[in-house]
Measured scan of single mutants.
Amino acid sequence: PKDEAKKKVKEAIKRGDEETAKRIAKKYNLDWDDAKREADEER
């Protein structure tokens, strides 16, 4: 599900692992900028 994928993307971003985050986002066709902004807001 997309929500689960987005959570994984945000967790990867918070760990500083943007490569993984981008790969997950691409795989699930998520909006990378959107997920990154959300992760930054939660930090």
Rank of each mutant, 00 (worst) to 15 (best):
R43V: 14
G16M: 02
Y28F: 12
D40M: 10
D34W: 08
D34S: 10
K26G: 07
D3N: 10
R23S: 12
A5S: 03
K8T: 07
L30E: 01
N29D: 12
D3T: 12
E19F: 06
N29Y: 05
D31V: 06
D3G: 09
E19Y: 07
K27N: 07
R15K: 09
G16I: 01
V9N: 00
R43K: 13
R37V: 06
K36E: 04
D33T: 09
V9R: 00
G16N: 04
K27L: 15
V9Y: 05
Y28S: 03
E38N: 05
D34F: 08
E11M: 07
K27Y: 14
K8Q: 14
K2F: 14
E42N: 07
K2G: 08
W32G: 01
A12Y: 13
K7V: 09
A35Q: 05
R15S: 08
E41P: 05
E18V: 14
T20G: 09
W32P: 02
E38H: 04
A5C: 09
E18P: 07
I13N: 01
D3K: 08
A39T: 07
D34R: 07
D34V: 13
D40R: 07
I24Q: 02
D40N: 11
K8D: 06
K27G: 03
E38D: 09
D17K: 02
A25H: 00
K26S: 12
A25T: 03
A5E: 04
D40Y: 13
K2V: 13
E4G: 07
K2H: 12
K6A: 09
K14A: 12
K10Y: 13
K7L: 10
K14I: 13
E38M: 05
G16T: 00
E11G: 03
A25D: 01
A21E: 00
E41T: 10
R23D: 11
E19A: 12
A25W: 00
R15C: 10
K6Y: 14
K26L: 13
K7R: 13
V9G: 01
I13W: 04
Y28V: 02
W32V: 03
I24Y: 03
K2S: 12
A39K: 04
V9F: 11
D40E: 14
K36F: 10
E4M: 11
D33N: 11
N29L: 06
R23W: 11
D33E: 14
K6D: 03
K26N: 10
A21L: 00
A25Y: 01
K22F: 06
I13V: 03
A35H: 04
A5H: 08
A35S: 06
